[in-house]
């Protein structure tokens, strides 16, 4: 049963992800992204990581995609003509895809060992709020802080880019 559901969600997610890339309409693309995120949430739920599933829907599906749509509508971005990729894009694309494949292969090889090491009966950290919170503030504190810092930098970047600074007077 859960294998069937997993396949269903996985195919759904991948199909929607492809829809994001290949859709010519920006809004339809964003909605495909929404559905892909819901599919991921479904996979989380299958893994009994209910908290992660709900957070996925709450944060990404509920808020982030809504903001995407807001921006798309506000700027009236249309799909437009597809330009052929530049050399740098193709190069970086090949490298990142290769890295992804290598990462996946290594994960599937070593992942089997890590699951065996999990103590039986312990709740997954993604399923219960308390375990999740504890992990977040102990084991994964550094990654959380780094990601937070990254987001802060991104935000500052947006502010700098969107505000056209003329001179020092503008900063006041």
């Amino acid at each position: 049963m859960s294998a069937i559901l997993f396949n269903l969600f996985a195919i759904f997610t991948v199909a929607c992800a492809l829809g994001v890339v290949f859709n010519r309409n920006t809004i339809a693309s964003a909605l495909c992204l929404l559905l892909a995120l819901v599919g991921v949430a479904g996979i989380f739920a299958l893994l009994e990581a209910f908290l992660l599933a709900v957070l996925m829907v709450l944060v990404y599906a509920g808020a982030v995609v809504a903001l995407f749509l807001f921006i798309v509508m506000l700027l009236d971005v249309s799909g437009g003509e597809r330009k052929p990729f530049g050399k740098a894009t193709v190069f970086s694309g090949i490298i990142s895809a290769g890295l992804l494949v290598v990462g996946l292969i290594s994960f599937t090889k070593h992942g089997a060992q890590t699951t065996a090491e999990l103590p039986a009966g312990a709740a997954a950290s993604g399923s219960v709020l308390k375990a999740y919170g504890e992990q977040l503030f102990t084991t994964y504190l550094l990654p959380v802080q780094i990601v937070g810092f990254l987001l802060l930098i991104a935000m500052l970047g947006v502010i700098v880019l969107s505000k056209k600074f003329q001179g020092l007077e503008d900063i006041k």
Binding site: L51, L58, G62
Partner: peptide
């Protein structure tokens, strides 16, 4: 959290 998550989809 589930209430918030599902109702956030109504937008």
């Amino acid at each position: 959290l589930a209430v918030f998550a599902i109702s956030s989809l109504s937008v």
